[in-house]
Simulated assay, not measured.
Amino acid sequence: MHTFNDAADSYVAHGGETRYLPRLIERFGPDDVTTVTPVAVRTAAVELFPNASPATRNRHAITPARAVLYHAHEMGWRMPARIRLFLAPKTRVTVPASRRWLETFIDRCDADNLPHLAACVLLMNLCGARVSEAINLLGEHVDLRERTALLVKTKTSLNSLRYMPDHLVERIRDLGLAPGERVFRYTSRFSVNERIFAVCDRAGLPYKSSHTVGRHAFATNALNAGVGVRVAMDAGGWKSSTIFLETYVSTVDAGRVVRDRFNAIHHSDQF
């Protein structure tokens, strides 16, 4: 017999996220994984989060339970389980930072002599780093020759290696790196967001949080640049394609892009 706890441990060992698992493990841990039914999961979501919205129940209970139970199916420990999400109203769409927004923001940082903030925002935007990962980046985590930054785990159980574009490498090199010292000097995500707000105000830009200018923009920009979904997910450290596509990705002129591609194919076929 394999328990839900066994399935969760195996899921994490294979790279699954741990953030929302503790309460599910507390609820189902010793149970035979074959007895954890869709009804049981939906009931647990309501009981564990009695005052939460449907979207929160989906995020904190249904989605992680789905992931663990599907992993158990892949391991041959149970049959697949189809667990319905709670119906959740559509929330306001987050508009990620555009290239023009980012250029204006960085120009304002340069004018205000804020090189650490500029480099921090670029790391989040170009590498999909969370603000907590960015502020915890130490000198020894950066390899300027290989142009990589090792993001120490925050939400996931594994550290994540990110590859930095040349202009970001140059900015980080100019900051000066020292082992044991924070690359961007900030110690709190609140400080980063307060500085972003202040720069946006001086630059006449709409405020965008570190998450919006970082992971949201990274996902959208990667796909709009023609990168495949799987490649973009792996580059930014996403495990769930559902969360990646439904939460983080926006399109830019989708209809026009598809039209232009179809036109290109049509004209190429004529010759």
Rank of each mutant, 00 (worst) to 15 (best):
E181H: 13
F49G: 07
W77M: 09
N159C: 12
R162L: 03
L138P: 07
R182E: 05
C109V: 12
P89L: 07
I135L: 15
R78E: 07
F49K: 13
C109H: 11
S132K: 13
P80N: 00
L137S: 09
D110H: 15
L158N: 14
S157E: 13
R173P: 00
H116T: 11
V169D: 00
H141W: 01
D112T: 02
P89K: 11
G76E: 04
E140V: 05
L161D: 10
R57F: 11
K155T: 00
F105L: 07
R145D: 13
V93C: 04
P64I: 01
L150N: 03
F49H: 14
L161G: 06
T156L: 06
T56N: 08
R78S: 04
L123Y: 06
N125S: 13
S188P: 02
P96M: 06
F105N: 03
V93R: 14
A61Y: 06
W77V: 00
N159W: 13
R100T: 15
E170D: 14
Y163K: 09
D107I: 06
A52L: 05
R78L: 02
V93L: 12
V192P: 00
L114V: 08
E146L: 12
L175F: 10
I83H: 01
F105C: 09
T187W: 00
P165W: 11
P165D: 05
P54M: 09
M75I: 08
A118K: 00
R84P: 03
L123I: 03
W101F: 15
C109R: 10
T104W: 01
R145G: 04
V152E: 12
A97T: 11
E194P: 01
N193E: 11
A178L: 12
S191F: 05
R182A: 15
V142T: 06
L138G: 01
V93P: 03
L177A: 06
A149T: 08
H116P: 05
T91H: 14
G76N: 09
I62D: 07
L168M: 03
D112R: 15
L158D: 15
R173K: 14
G139V: 06
L158G: 03
P80S: 04
A52F: 09
A55D: 12
S98L: 10
E194W: 01
H73W: 15
T63S: 14
H167N: 12
L123A: 05
I172F: 00
P80Y: 04
E140M: 02
R99P: 05
A119K: 03
L126V: 00
W77Q: 08
T63G: 00
N136G: 14
V152F: 02
R171S: 01
L122D: 09
L158W: 07
T56I: 12
H167E: 12
V192D: 05
R59W: 01
F184R: 06
D166I: 08
R189A: 15
A61E: 08
V93T: 13
R130P: 02
A134L: 01
